[in-house]
Amino acid sequence: MQYFKKSAYLFLLPTIIGLLLFRLIPVIFAFFTSFTDWDIYSPPVWIGLENYTRIFQSGEFWQILRNTLLFTAIYTVGVCIIGLFFAMLLNQRLKGIKFFRSLFFLPVITSIVAVGIIWNWILSPQNGILNILLDKIFNLQEPISWLGDPDYALIALALVYIWKSVGYQMLIFLAGLQNIPTELQEAAQMDGANKWKVFTKVTLPLLTPTIFFVLVITIIESFHTFGITHSMTQGGPYNATNTLSYFIYQNAFVHFNMGYASSLSFVLFILILVITWINFLYRKKWVNY
């Protein structure tokens, strides 16, 4: 018996062509570009591994790599915990719960430029509402420059990213929570478990496959920082908020160092690959199926 008709390939063709043209071929192209010096105006010049040695010898790269990893840590932890927290809150039978669910999802679909402008206002050291509130409560000695001070800038930026994207992870958690049969939780309660015990001993273990999925996509997403960085700090002050993907953009499309940018992309690719591989390696230890 024939399971596949040849005509199936015809229907797959658009996707395959799209994948080849816009994904795989550019990836292979970028791989070769990474061994060249190419300013896009003149033909590329083959320079072997020079781009890669330049990366590892440049102090700028190590600073940006540190920023990237720190950002990933803050962002992933933030998104997972806050996402789960809101998912728990919204996983209830309340009047108007649908309204709240869409409300918390709203930042995800808000335009990045608008988000950047509004948060710039909120975080402004002069008349920003955050500083005004903090001053009312803690009586600040001098205004905190959230985005201008290298000590705070990356954290402040990461919080905006979390605010912007946590709704998506929240939705996945919500779906995961609703898949957990309520009988199990009720049974635990009857056995005398308090709410916290029910959460840690029943809900959380049953949610681990969802948590794993969220963790993997969030980590990958955290390396994918561009829009808000571009509209809020452009990598400043003095590279304090510059992360690898934004650095790649700067080299490729601001300074037109295509070769260097391509080699940076492959460094980032290896980084994501290794982290994701580690993720899968440790999955068995804590994920319940």
């Binding site: 990958i220 994918h224 992309s265 994501i272």
Partner: peptide
Amino acid sequence: KWIGMTVLFVFVIGFLAACGNNSD
């Protein structure tokens, strides 16, 4: 597991390609 890794591999490549793509 193998399938999972392959899917993920494609996903990662996809993301990287998507990065460069817009401007291309």
